[in-house]
Amino acid sequence: MFDIIIIGAGPAGLTAAIYARRAEKTVLVLEAKSYGGQIINTPDIENYPVCPHISGFDFATGLYEQTKALGAEFVFEKAVDIINGEKIKEVVTEKGKYQGKTIIIATGSENRKLGVDGEDRLIGRGISYCATCDGAFYRKKTVAVVGGGNTALEDALYLSDIAEKVYLIHRRDTFRGEEATIKRLKEKTNVEFVLNSTVTSLNAEKRLTSIEVKDKDGKVTQLFVNGLFVAVGRIPETQNFGKTVNLDESGYVVAGENCITNADGIFVAGDNRVKSVRQLVTATADGAIAATEAVKYINQF
């Protein structure tokens, strides 16, 4: 049995592992994919204290090495359930079961999909969820970005310097993102706003060739695009834990800054917690807090 089982090896989970190991607790980290979480997609992190520039890959790898050197164990299996016993808790994965005194859920979030037919099939064939990752493939091409938040606005701005033309499609006529970014976008001659509109269909042969958008009056327009960048938000990866801990209506685990959930001995850290700022620095902060709370809990065990 482990003192602490951490589900998720992103910045929150790995930081929790560092704090837990330094408190001399035994730690198992379970991860469905590979260490690092979504930060590995970021080419250059510029807002983490003391690191004016570091790639997401270097950040994640450094954090992983640090955690391993401190003696955390890693198992790469997807957690599918928690059995919340009073003294012994179990995390069920696709392959096995692991027992712990406490659990920290640090599973992060994933890209929300558009939900239009053919979307999955066209990932990598014109559909992308990461402009900074895939933008370079669309040099001098026509692309569309769909979404109304900061990510969509920043993606459109980023792509406007690469692509010939960028459509920015949003279902409302006002954006949730920063005013400064909107202003810069409006100054771009190759960005066209397609407002009060939703993407209703994806047309493709071998790859995406055009999309159809429908405006609020029901008028359908066909846009010829080589790429569609989907930036309609993220969804917390908490589907498997809803019966163990309280989730809010969007699926985020309900807990305050102390990372303590409603379930005794189960903590939450990172982007999957209810919070207003989801940044690298808030994820690592959560990791430190959740681990410290877990250690406190164990010491009263």
């Binding site: 469905a32 994919k33 590979s34 790469f76 990932i123 990598g124 064939r125 895939d134 071998k206």
Partner: peptide
């Protein structure tokens, strides 16, 4: 080969594309 997202794994059998997978996937 119409690669527009990476990492992109393409499995070739007998000189032709058999299937592809886009994005980071674990070893299994």
């Amino acid at each position: 080969y119409s690669v527009y997202s990476i990492p992109c794994l393409v499995l070739f059998k007998n000189g032709a594309e058999a299937k592809r997978s886009v994005g980071l996937i674990p070893k299994a």
